[in-house]
Amino acid sequence: MAYRLLSGLLITLIFSISSWAEEIPLNLSHPDQYTVLKGDTLWNIAGKFLNHPWQWPELWRHNNQIENPNLIYPGDTIYFSVVNGKPQLSLARNEQPQLPAGSPCILKEEDIKNGRTDFAVSENGKLLPCIREITGKQAIKLVPAEAIAKYLTSPKVVGKNELDTAPYVIGFAGEHLIAGTGDKIYVRSITRPKSLSYTIYRAGDTYVSPVSGEILGYEAKYIADSTLQQAGDPATLAVTKSGSEIVIGDRIMVNSEEDVALNYFPRPPAHNIKGNIISVLGGVSQIGQYNVVVIDKGTADGLLPGHELDIYKRGNIVSDAYSAVKTDAVRLPDEIAGTLMVFRPFERISYALIMKAGQAIHVLDKVQIP
């Protein structure tokens, strides 16, 4: 699960407090303690203590007296301290009140899973009432999963030939002009099917490098899911789920199971990467925290799920009225505007989640290694 950020990543710290200031910069306004609230993510909690939340494990002190210390729950308290010249973070668990000791029967969740059969009975052999104990707390997640869930499998990025050569919708059963869930569609041509499960796509944006003008990929927008009923030319498919109305010309691709990363461990890329935000998904015009953007770097550039990049707002070009050169202009320095995390890289572009936005973010803003 995504919230298992800390597991197996503890590091023995050997630097002095002055070295830490350079190696792991602390948030100058960090609190001495913070109590976790419902809706928090591990990322935003780490940001309260650190300039770079991905360095959290290096300050984490494992408390062996706490069951599952890698999981953090609402109500738990994180403490900041300096021990032997080294800053560290530790956890105090918010224990739930215990049920009365005199309760005749306490039925735990694991008892139900294990098929418990022994229960308390009265003197005359009647079954006594049982108190069912339910653990309602859920551990906080690393990132807000709901912000990226719909982008984990669709849309996707393909090459031009993948769309142009894919089978396409040629007609509908029942003389419909469009189709949706429950309808039958006719497709050219699926004569040698490789699967019974197909996804219907429509051509979307063309992603272009703002530097070279080169085409980096094509967006395939998700339209619907379908199952093959009869192969042929045309083939017959039944629509099982639709996100939009299906029209003539929509393309069909095998519904292949992609490897979707859910266990994100934010960290910087291993080598220098500089790129640009080239698009924003979700139909939004203003880019802010937890929006999903497209950047012009991908697996071919070494990007992997979890890689963190800083976002820089491009400096404006201003006229210099005092320069000896009549038409002189100066580009102002780029300013850091936020942080993003790659969660779904393709070959030459990637989908990334805006984790932090200190100011307005725009298409064509730069991204680079922290």
Rank of each mutant, 00 (worst) to 15 (best):
A2L: 05
A2P: 01
L5N: 01
L5D: 01
L6K: 08
S7T: 11
L9W: 05
I14S: 11
S16D: 14
I17S: 13
S18I: 14
A21G: 00
L28F: 09
Q33A: 13
W43F: 12
N44E: 13
A46Q: 03
F49A: 04
N51D: 12
N51S: 14
N51E: 15
P53E: 05
E58L: 15
E58Y: 07
L59N: 01
H62N: 08
N63M: 09
I66M: 01
E67H: 02
N68M: 00
P69D: 02
N70S: 05
Y73G: 05
K86E: 08
Q88N: 10
L89D: 05
A92I: 13
Q98L: 15
G102K: 12
S103N: 06
I106T: 10
K108Q: 15
E109K: 15
R116I: 05
A120I: 13
A120S: 13
V121N: 05
S122Y: 03
E123V: 15
C130T: 07
I134F: 12
I140N: 02
L142A: 05
A147K: 10
V158D: 00
G159E: 10
E162L: 14
E162I: 14
T165L: 12
I170K: 05
H176G: 07
H176W: 06
I178P: 00
A179L: 10
T181S: 12
G182M: 04
R192A: 15
S195K: 02
L196G: 12
T199E: 02
Y201Q: 08
V208C: 00
S209G: 11
P210W: 13
P210G: 09
V211H: 09
V211A: 09
A231W: 03
T236H: 00
A238F: 09
K241Q: 15
S242T: 10
I246H: 02
D259L: 14
D259Y: 09
N263W: 05
F265H: 02
F265T: 04
P266T: 11
R267G: 03
P269T: 10
I273R: 03
N276M: 11
I277N: 02
S279E: 09
V280T: 03
V284A: 07
I287L: 06
D296T: 11
G298K: 01
D301Y: 06
P305H: 10
G306Y: 00
L309Q: 04
D310E: 12
I311V: 15
Y312R: 10
G315R: 14
S319E: 07
D320C: 09
A321R: 07
S323V: 12
V325P: 00
D328F: 10
R331L: 10
L332C: 09
I336F: 04
A337P: 00
A337F: 01
M341A: 05
F343C: 08
F343Y: 04
F343R: 04
R344Q: 12
V363T: 06
I369D: 07
P370L: 14
